[in-house]
């Protein structure tokens, strides 16, 4: 339970950054932390005590492999999620730069007052 709680704390830290920070780049960092937290939680879900990687090696018996390997399904989801997260981070940084160029400010609070 401890490990799950730590993932929840990591998500809380990211949420705090998203809610409190006014600097847009800091908000981007907060979203990245939330992503990390979700990935961590999914990988933790698949773990079993003394688990080995879900990659069968040549000399290994099938029964021993099935008995010891961790759950591969969350790993697949997280693998795609990490790479999508990178694309997302680039898009967010691109939007941040464009907003700064357009408004000359990175204050999220002022952003909502500005029109046009």
């Amino acid at each position: 339970m401890m490990m799950y709680a730590l993932a929840a704390v990591l998500l809380g830290v990211g949420l705090y950054g998203l809610l409190v920070k006014r600097h847009l780049l800091k908000k981007v960092l907060g979203l990245l932390i939330v992503e990390h937290a979700v990935n961590l939680f999914l990988i933790q879900l698949g773990y079993i005590d003394g688990g080995i990687a879900p990659i069968r090696t040549a000399g290994e018996e099938a029964a021993a492999f099935v008995g010891n390997a961790v759950d591969p399904l969350p790993q697949v989801l997280v693998l795609t999620s990490i790479v999508i997260g990178l694309g997302l981070a680039m898009l967010m940084v691109a939007l941040t730069l464009r907003i700064y160029q357009r408004y000359g400010s990175l204050d999220a609070d002022r952003m909502s007052e500005l029109k046009g």
Partner: peptide, 11 residues
């Protein structure tokens, strides 16, 4: 450490 080398490399 959680048995996910694929994820570790990509990360």
């Amino acid at each position: 450490l959680l048995g996910a080398p694929d994820i570790a490399i990509t990360q």
